[in-house]
Design a protein around this nucleic acid. Structure first.
Length: 824
RNA sequence: GGGCGAGUGGCGGAACUGGUAUACGCGACGGACUUAAAAUCCGUUGCCUGAAUAAGGCUUGUGGGUUCGAGUCCCACCUCGCCCACCA
């Protein structure tokens, strides 16, 4: 008997699959469609690690399952090739990123195939190729043409090592995401001219659509928080003895009567023009000091700081004078950069106490004891309550008075309703070489001119030096031949934009390109995309906010310009866990604790055992710890199935007696039901447990009787078919050994038959006062009287019940019977 | 500080709308096969008392509650993880 040897069969089938195009999706097929994919890979020199193995196996299993169920299943593959790491490597090694990608990506091909992933290689994409980024640039043009792209000078996060702007989400704990070591400097803020996409125009619809998504809940929540919608009002205060005014944003207009002071962010231009001459020295020193402070220092400083400007503003609600302060706890980039402070806010309460500002309570809790404490200013009362000292609004509930006060102030010309978002417009410029050039030309006569579509792509020139030019521009500023061009409008001499596009743009639309990867006359064929959208299954362990939100934004934009029908690109999204080292820490190159999936495969366990273990170890959304002892376990399971099929094939023809046949069919069909439902619901671990259970049962039955016949054939084939998504190579091999000439990987998913799931006898638990005292076999569907009779005829139960008063009997059909007796 | 989630054997983890807690796997122990080992196959394996595969008691982070019955529902607390973090 041949033994299970993955080293032999895995490469064999990988070759056959590749040659026969087993996983090539027919995008115009009449079958129902299904597309399952994981977030595409950023190719680096390191190759895939165990975390990638986990990610991509999840979607591969799904794709395979659906393919077997008869869907036209598409499991695409691509490379997110642009970005900083490759460029940094190029700077260090002096090899162009184009060259290193050309070298690295084929290595990934080998690894992906070795893992047995059912990718459609005919439709492979890579974002750094001109045939792809032509359309990334085209999206920029479309945004531009639809008024969704604009240029502005903004304070931006700046990495002083890479000399480039960083997006908000690239700043982690105050440091650049690429340089977050203890010795790395904090990210700075600098004024930079930037291109932006108006994602904030879609803030509301993105927010509203979030709830109904079939996505991991934590990600939906993160998206909502990221958008951070808050409704309130802008209220304008006139400045005393001055023709200026200050507009503040508040969500608590009902507390306007308690306004004790105004605080301006130090960055505001208004500050200098307002400051009284006798305070200007102090204010200027404060501004200078907070400019020097890094953002982390400002955030770490929980202690509120500020200085008085010497000027007063007039509260439009009651015409009281309130002092105007400058404080760096107010964020310049949110709202108007100015707030009014009052005693009904924790931070302001602290500020009032620290600087001894006079303040008045205008909201009181209903509880009288608490109200007394609030009146005595023992703590900041920030909840809703009854208004006092609030003019005509006194006595009203704060939540009801809020809108009335806004309306009242609006009438007086001092307020307007306003919605603010934490989310800012998407900064899409990067002062880096390794990205898609922005299709803009800077003409001394015509200004910023968008290149016409026929001039796309603007091909990224090959350079030898990729270091940013240091003046804030990318290395492209030195590519003189490329830089100098003519204006598409007037034909005069002009210069190209040296910024490149944020790589998040590349990854925000790639799922559509999978459907038409080589189209050079359009971004994609709309009809094919409309047939295949949305992505049925998407998974990843990162990018809960940025990437997923950007992709949703692009999908909505595409919907508006008629390219797609579905405003939501990903129907289902699974935020799976990561794999950590045994001690729970992250795998990292510097620690040298990484695990190479190919090593596990080469050790002789094979890809099937590795895949199965990764899917079995824990629920998909849990962070699993890598256990080197796990793969031998799933290897053993696969070997057992292998041996079973060998024994079946070597057995002689023969019939089975009815009870054994029945047992076989029951076991198998129960397994089919469980595996089908579990894969559907992303509970792969219990699906595999059920495959193992079934195998164990078949072993027990085989010890009694195994012979070649229809029942055993059905059982072994069903078992092999149901394990195929997890262990595709061995399943294919066994399928062939069982006499099939076509692949197991299409149209083979078994259906279970309900008639094998109903039991004629069931085990019923007998409890006395809720305690388990016995079990009995009884025909299923027995009525209560019958069950009680059966229970009473059990010796043990009878002894428990003898001489006792049965106060109550609870009977759950086919499950349990509970006698409640008096205990004394 | 805010939000979300989770605490189950030696370990990873099962348990449907409350109904046999510990499925499945790892590890450990015993046996068969073998000159021996590996591999394989067959058992045992939550804890305590017990010679016991007799019987009983205890057990899902802690304490209380609801219920005939709670890992599951309610209240309080402890611990851990993740995300956001001065957004007015």
């Amino acid at each position: 008997m041949k033994r299970y040897n993955p080293k032999e069969i895995e490469p064999k089938w990988q070759k056959i699959w590749q040659e026969s195009g087993t996983y090539t999706a027919n995008l115009t097929s009449d079958k129902p469609k299904y597309i399952a994919m994981s977030m595409f890979n950023y190719p680096s020199g390191a190759g895939i690690h165990i975390g990638h193995a986990m990610n991509y196996t999840i979607s591969d299993v799904k794709a395979r399952f659906k393919r077997q169920q008869g869907y036209e299943s598409y499991h695409p593959v691509g490379w997110d090739a642009f970005g900083l790491p490759a460029e940094n490597y190029a700077i260090k090694a002096g090899v162009s990123p184009q060259e290193s990608m050309a070298k690295i990506i084929p290595g990934y091909h080998k690894q992906y195939r070795a893992m047995g992933w059912s990718n459609d290689w005919e439709k492979e994409i890579a974002t750094h190729l001109p045939e792809y980024y032509k359309w990334t640039q085209w999206i920029f043009s479309q945004m531009h043409k639809h008024g969704m792209a604009y240029q502005d000078v903004r304070m931006q996060w700046w990495c002083s090592i890479d000399n480039t702007v960083l997006a908000n989400e690239q700043v982690i704990d105050g440091k650049c995401w690429r340089h977050d070591g203890p010795d790395d400097p904090p990210a700075e803020k600098r004024e930079v001219k930037q291109w932006f996409f108006k994602i904030t125009e879609y803030a509301d619809e993105l927010l509203e659509a979030t709830d109904s998504l079939d996505w991991t809940e934590s990600v939906k929540l993160a998206q909502k928080n990221w958008i951070g919608r808050s409704t309130g009002a802008e209220i304008t205060f006139k400045v005393k003895d001055n023709d200026k005014s200050i507009t503040v944003f508040t969500t608590r207009a009902d507390t306007i009567f308690s306004a004790a002071f105004i605080v301006l962010a130090p960055e505001l231009d208004l500050v200098k023009s307002l400051t009284a001459s006798n305070q200007s020295k102090e204010v200027e020193a404060y501004i200078a000091a907070s400019e020097k402070k890094s953002e982390i220092e400002r955030q770490a400083d929980k202690e509120k700081t500020g200085v008085f400007t010497g000027t007063y503003a007039i509260n439009p609600a009651n015409n009281e004078e309130v002092p105007i302060w400058v404080g760096d706890f107010v964020l310049a980039g949110y709202g108007t950069g100015a707030v009014f402070g009052d005693i009904h806010d924790e931070r302001d309460f602290e500020f009032i106490n620290k600087f001894d500002i006079s303040a008045r309570v205008t909201v009181l809790p209903e509880d009288e004891v608490e109200a007394e404490k609030v009146k005595n200013k023992e703590y900041a009362y920030t909840s809703e309550g009854i208004l006092v000292d609030s003019g005509e609004f006194s006595g009203q509930r704060s939540e009801a008075a809020r809108d009335k006060i806004i309306a009242w102030l609006t009438k007086k010309g001092a307020a307007k309703e306003k919605v603010n978002y934490k989310m800012r417009d998407w900064s899409v410029s990067r002062q880096r070489y390794w990205g898609a050039p922005i299709p803009i030309v800077d003409c001394p006569k015509c200004g910023q001119v968008l290149l016409p579509d026929e001039d796309l792509p603007v091909v990224l020139p090959e350079l030898t030096d990729f270091q940013p030019s240091g003046d804030g521009r990318s290395a492209l500023a030195r590519a003189t031949d490329w830089l100098k061009t003519s204006c598409p409008k007037c034909g005069g001499p002009a210069e190209r934009e040296t910024d490149t596009l944020d790589t998040y743009i590349c990854s925000s639309w790639y799922m559509y390109r999978y459907f038409d990867p080589h189209n050079q006359s359009a971004i994609f064929n709309k009809d094919i995309v409309k047939k295949w959208e949305p992505i049925d299954f998407y998974n990843g362990a990162d990018h809960a906010t940025a990437h997923l939100l950007y992709a949703r934004f692009i999908a909505r934009f595409f919907t508006k310009i008629g390219l797609v029908n579905e405003p939501e690109p990903f129907k289902q999204f699974l935020f799976n866990g990561k794999v950590t080292a045994k001690d729970g820490t992250m795998f990292s190159k510097s620690k040298g604790n990484g695990v190479d999936p190919l090593d596990i495969i080469d050790q002789g366990y094979g890809a099937d055992a590795l895949r199965t273990y990764l899917m079995f170890a824990a629920p998909l959304e849990i962070w699993a710890r890598w256990d080197p002892g796990g793969v031998p376990g799933t290897f053993k399971f696969i070997s057992r199935v292998w041996t079973l099929v060998q024994e079946y094939n070597e057995a002689s023809e023969g019939s089975l007696n009815t009870p054994i046949a029945d047992e076989l069919l029951r076991t198998t069909h129960r397994m089919i039901k469980k595996v089908t439902e579990d894969i559907e619901n992303n509970r792969y671990n219990t699906a595999i447990a059920s495959l193992m259970e079934c195998t164990n049962s078949l072993y027990k039955i085989k010890a009694k009787s195994i012979s070649k016949n229809e029942v055993w054939k059905e059982s072994t084939e069903n078992l092999v078919a149901c394990m195929a998504p997890f262990a595709p190579h061995v399943a294919e091999e066994l399928w062939q050994q069982l006499g099939h000439s076509t692949s197991i990987h299409a149209d083979t998913w078994p259906k279970y038959d309900e008639k094998y799931l109903v039991e004629d006898k069931v085990t019923i638990v007998v409890q006395i006062n809720g305690k388990l005292r016995g079990q009995l076999q009884i025909e299923s569907g027995a009525d209560e009287a019958r069950a009680i009779e059966a229970a009473r005829s059990d010796d043990k139960i009878a002894s428990y019940l003898s001489g006792k008063d049965i106060k109550k009997t609870i009977y759950v059909p086919d499950k349990l019977i509970n006698f409640v007796i008096s205990t004394s």
